[in-house]
């Protein structure tokens, strides 16, 4: 399910921002988050991204934490993050840089993307959960706590 959500969200953002992804055509990029259960491959082909959980071929493997990933999306420089050991790259660094350049052209409005499938109210609630996660040191526990709180009494969750 996570590949489905990622694939749809990413391609939606690419089409709404009219980003040219042709420099990555034919490339396969593995992205692993160290502190979140996400280990996926982005395959750029036919002018879109496919997101899958397995691939025999990989051009570059990128390993980083969730907060480092968030920094990358917020225009952090790849070489600075490499120097600070916030990101590990195996393989073609140029391909990794191209992916980062593309991601940095996108405006990640999480609620806007989610609202396509869930409607505005649920997307807004989910956005509040994400905000809470961003400010937490233990995101998975914080996520569980937040979901439990919403399910028990959605009105008091601010």
């Amino acid at each position: 399910m996570k590949t489905l959500i990622l694939e749809n969200a990413l391609n939606h953002l690419l089409s709404t921002h009219q980003v040219d992804i042709s420099p990555l055509e034919g490339k396969t990029i593995r992205l692993s988050l160290q502190d979140f259960p996400l280990d996926v491959y982005f395959i750029c082909t036919n002018n879109r991204f496919f997101v899958v959980t397995n691939s025999d071929v990989t051009d570059v493997e990128i390993t980083l934490t969730m907060s480092a990933f968030a920094d990358l999306l917020k225009q952090a420089k790849l070489h600075d993050m490499l120097r600070q050991d916030k990101i590990i790259i195996h393989g073609d660094v140029k391909t990794a840089q191209l992916l980062v350049d593309i991601l940095q052209q996108l405006d990640f409005d999480f609620e806007e993307v989610l609202s396509q499938w869930t409607g505005d109210i649920i997307a807004h609630q989910a956005g509040k959960v994400v905000s809470h996660l961003k400010s937490s040191d233990r995101p998975i526990s914080a996520f569980k706590d937040k979901i439990a709180a919403i399910l028990i009494n959605p009105k008091v969750v601010k």
């Binding site: 489905l4 749809n8 089409s15 879109r48 496919f50």
Partner: peptide
């Protein structure tokens, strides 16, 4: 519905 969502089809 799931199949359509997985199709990665665009305009």
């Amino acid at each position: 519905h799931y199949t359509i969502a997985m199709a990665n089809v665009k305009t």
